[in-house]
Amino acid sequence: MSVTTEQLADVATLARLKLAPEHSQSLTHAFNEILSLVDQLQALELESVKPMAHPRDENQRLRQDLVTESNAREAFQAIAPDAQEGLYVVPPVIE
């Protein structure tokens, strides 16, 4: 498979990235080279193979329902780009 620059721009939008116009050609080329590297997987017959999401076959451990965290807003918001009145500030969210 391969993608066009336009298709790649859609993927970029999904990832909230913008392709620089001067690089979009070369990036599309590089992207398609990577696709050609991974494309061989599509030819494999793997119908009966169980997908593997984790490197080891273990179960999720469960945490006891305890409140262990205390308020650390000051420390967290000290490193925020914009926090006011205890809130993280962003351009208006329109619903």
Partner: peptide
């Protein structure tokens, strides 16, 4: 497909 091949 990659997840399955990972198991192999």
């Amino acid at each position: 497909q990659a997840q399955k091949a990972r198991r192999l």
